[in-house]
């Protein structure tokens, strides 16, 4: 009994310690991001890596998600003769919930894991120590551009995802299933407004960008300098980021509008 309590206590303390370490890293990133030199070259590279190279997978997933959502919604709505509301249904689902969550999960799996693995292998091969030897702060040179590019990239990818998904839904709903184009678009535009839906989606995308960026860089930066450490950092990033994205999504949805 005592031993169990002790493990519980140790785990809790570890967890609190890790949270504190993440917060310290976040503060360092903010400080380094605001302070010159701004290292634009590094930013471009990182946005290319985590953003541009994710465009294809994000668009492809968006198109199929939109298309299947359209099929699913049509099956139910047509029973009530309410196919006209297909646009509203698809729009609600995509803009507020599916868009930010799926984009963030995809980016966490594709770019977040790569980011953590890259930093972890830099730790393992003592490249970060090499930077310190040249009195370059690795947080400034490596971590900050990576984390910040993730935050900048997420809302942009969210926008792309939703627009492509809406196009996919429009194609399936209008061209394949025969819903009236005008009805689809007007119900979509009527059902959504900026404050309730689009702003919420953007805030979520930003929050998830912060989550993925922080978790990936923290996991990589604090990894063990071994091969096992690299793999643990990668796995840990994907698992922690995915779970925290889903939990954070619920919290934002529940708190929005209060």
């Amino acid at each position: 009994m005592r031993a169990r309590l002790e493990t519980l206590g140790a785990r809790t303390l570890d967890g609190i310690g890790a949270l504190g370490a993440v917060a310290v890293l976040a503060l360092q990133i903010v400080r380094m991001g605001l302070k010159p030199p701004y290292r634009l070259r590094r930013w471009v590279d990182e946005v290319l890596d985590s953003g541009v190279r994710s465009v294809l997978i994000v668009c492809l997933s968006g198109a199929t998600v939109g298309a299947s959502l359209s099929l699913l919604g049509y099956g139910t709505l047509s029973r009530f003769g309410a196919e006209g509301f297909l646009g509203a249904l698809v729009g609600h689902a995509l803009v507020r919930e599916l868009g930010p969550v799926l984009t963030a999960l995809l980016v966490a799996g594709r770019a977040g894991s790569a980011m953590a693995a890259e930093i972890a292998s830099m730790v393992q091969t003592e490249q970060l120590d090499g930077l310190r030897m040249m009195s370059i702060d690795p947080v400034d040179y490596v971590i900050t551009p990576k984390a910040c590019s993730m935050i900048a990239v997420m809302p942009l990818l969210y926008g792309l995802f939703v627009v492509v998904a809406l196009l996919g839904a429009l194609y399936v709903g209008v061209d394949l299933l025969g819903v009236d184009r005008g009805q689809f678009l007007s119900s979509l535009e009527d059902a959504l407004n900026f404050r309730e839906h689009v702003a919420q989606g953007l805030v979520k995308a930003l929050a998830f960008g912060v989550l993925v960026g922080l978790i990936a860089t923290y996991r990589g930066y604090t990894s063990e300098p071994t091969s096992a450490g690299v793999s643990a950092a990668t796995t840990g990033t994907v698992v922690t980021a995915s779970v925290s994205i889903l939990v954070c999504n619920y919290v934002i949805t529940a708190l929005w509008g209060i």
């Binding site: 946005v47 809302p155 926008g159 627009v163 535009e189 959504l192 900026f194 689009v198 953007l202």
Partner: peptide
Amino acid sequence: FVMAGLASIAYLSLQVGG
């Protein structure tokens, strides 16, 4: 990429978001 992302956000906000 940035242009495309900003354009889609603008579309969502202005056209769809009304």
